[in-house]
Every structure is written in C-alpha cells, then in structure tokens.
Computed example of a mutant assay.
Amino acid sequence: MRYAQGDGLTDAGRAARERVRQQAVERFQAGQKNAEVADALRVSERSVERWRRAWREQGEAGVPSKGSPGRLRLGDGQIARLARELERGPLAHGLVDQRWTLARIKTLIGRLIHVSYTVEGTWRLLRRHGWSWQQPARRAIGRNNSAVEVWKKETWPRVRASRRSAGPGSSSRTKPGSR
C-alpha cells in the first residue's frame, strides 16, 4: 500500500501508519506468511514483502517509514525566511511588477534556500503553511480616484441619457400583432 507522505495525513494518521508496520513485525515474529499478514492488515503483499526484507536485514529499526525520498521539506527557519521575503514583495527581488506567481516563488525558493520544487510542489508548500492564491484587482497605477468619481457623477449620466430609449417595436421588423 502506498501512503501519502504528509499530503492530507495528520500526525495521528502517520502514527496509525507506523502502527500497521509494527503489527506486521509482530506477525513476522509469529511466523505468519506474507499473504496472511497482507490480508489481516489490509495492505498489499508487495508492501509486506518489502517490510519483511527490511526486518530480516535491519531488524525492527528497518521497518518504520523513512518518508518520501522525492519531497524536500523546508525547516521552520527556512519557511519563516521565505515568508519574510514574500512579504517584501516582488519588486524587492528585481521583478517588474507586484505579482507573485508560483513560478516566481519557485525560483525564489531556489535562489534563497537552494532547494528545487516543482510549480505544483510550490503550491502545496504554500497551502500547507497558510498561504492562499489571490487575484490582484486590475487597477491602473496612475489611477486618480477623485477624477473617476467626478466622471461617474457628471459625465456618465450624460452618456447614458444620450442613448435612444427602446420603445415597443423599436427593434422589431414586424408590425405589432402580425404574428
């Protein structure tokens, strides 16, 4: 059985997973066959074979999970450093606008911490640590809010009033009642 390493598993879930492995060791010591252990613990025979091999070679110390070799985790200090750098903003890191994209954050992690993440892995890392995606409000940098308000009050009513109002039959090609 393949377990997710950290994705959706709580500490209690990881502890339960390790208890299953420990139960397998107890069954190995009792002389049960791989198929029996797999059925009893509801795991694949292949996993039981791997655990039994590790148990024979290294004893009980070889059976616990060593975690996923593919996932690089950042320590608390590294996460705190990343958060500080993200708070500084993209401009502080030589980017031309104020948008953090996953690709940019991935590059930042590589530059600061020398750890390589995929874009998807970057998203999972951020989500795990409380960051969420945000969509920037599209506003011009040179926007003058007071001028916009004046335009809405003075110009817009004139523009809207100059449109021809639609009366009955104004867009119809047939005469009323000639259906």
Score class of each variant (00 low, 15 high):
2 R>G: 00
5 Q>D: 13
6 G>A: 11
7 D>H: 08
9 L>W: 07
9 L>P: 01
12 A>C: 04
14 R>P: 01
15 A>K: 10
15 A>N: 11
16 A>P: 01
19 R>M: 14
20 V>S: 04
22 Q>P: 01
23 Q>P: 00
27 R>E: 10
27 R>P: 01
39 D>I: 00
41 L>G: 02
44 S>E: 14
44 S>T: 15
46 R>D: 08
47 S>W: 02
49 E>V: 07
49 E>Y: 11
49 E>G: 12
52 R>W: 06
54 A>N: 14
56 R>N: 08
58 Q>V: 00
70 G>Y: 11
70 G>Q: 11
71 R>C: 00
73 R>L: 08
74 L>G: 03
75 G>F: 06
76 D>A: 14
76 D>F: 02
81 R>P: 00
84 R>M: 05
84 R>S: 12
87 E>A: 14
91 L>F: 12
92 A>G: 15
92 A>R: 11
95 L>W: 08
95 L>A: 05
100 W>I: 02
101 T>C: 03
102 L>C: 01
102 L>M: 05
105 I>E: 02
106 K>D: 06
108 L>M: 09
109 I>Y: 04
113 I>W: 06
114 H>Y: 07
114 H>E: 13
115 V>G: 03
115 V>E: 09
116 S>H: 12
117 Y>S: 01
118 T>K: 06
120 E>K: 04
120 E>M: 07
121 G>C: 03
122 T>M: 03
123 W>I: 00
127 R>S: 09
130 G>W: 11
132 S>V: 09
133 W>P: 05
134 Q>Y: 10
134 Q>I: 07
135 Q>W: 09
135 Q>C: 00
138 R>F: 06
138 R>M: 07
141 I>Y: 15
146 S>M: 10
147 A>F: 13
148 V>I: 15
149 E>I: 13
150 V>H: 14
153 K>A: 13
153 K>E: 15
156 W>N: 01
156 W>Y: 14
161 A>K: 12
163 R>C: 02
163 R>D: 09
163 R>W: 12
164 R>P: 05
167 G>T: 14
170 S>K: 09
170 S>I: 03
171 S>I: 03
172 S>R: 11
174 T>W: 09
175 K>P: 00
178 S>C: 06
178 S>Q: 10
179 R>M: 01
179 R>Y: 07
